[in-house]
C-alpha cells in the first residue's frame, strides 16, 4: 500500500474522531473539558465513534455512486 493510500485511510478513520471532538468542543467550554468527557467514560466515545464512522462510510459511498452516475 502506498504512503498516500495509507494516509488516506488514516484520514478516513480519524475523521469521525475529529468530528466528534469538534462537535463536543462546540457544546462544551473547551478542549480540556472534552478530554475530561472522554476520560470519564471512554465507552461513550467508542459507541459514538462506531456510529459516526458508519454514517460517514454510507455517506461517502452513496455520494460516490451518485457522482459516478452523473
Amino acid at each position: 500500500m502506498s504512503l498516500k493510500k495509507c494516509l488516506n485511510w488514516m484520514f478516513y478513520f480519524t475523521l469521525p474522531l475529529l468530528l466528534i471532538v469538534s462537535m463536543e468542543m462546540m457544546k462544551k467550554e473547551g478542549l480540556p473539558e472534552v478530554f475530561q468527557w472522554i476520560l470519564d467514560k471512554p465507552s461513550r466515545l467508542f459507541v459514538t465513534y462506531i456510529f459516526v464512522l458508519c454514517i460517514q462510510s454510507c455517506l461517502f459511498i452513496f455520494t460516490k455512486i451518485c457522482m459516478s452516475c452523473t
Partner: peptide, 25 residues
C-alpha cells in the same frame, strides 16, 4: 472523486456492514 479507490463489491460490503451497525446502535 475522479479516481475510484474501492471496487463495487467492497463498497457494497461496507455499506451493508455500516447500515447493519447503524440499525443495531
Amino acid at each position: 472523486m475522479n479516481g475510484s479507490s474501492l471496487q463495487l463489491r467492497s463498497r457494497l460490503i461496507v455499506v451493508i456492514v455500516s447500515v447493519i451497525a447503524i440499525l443495531f446502535i
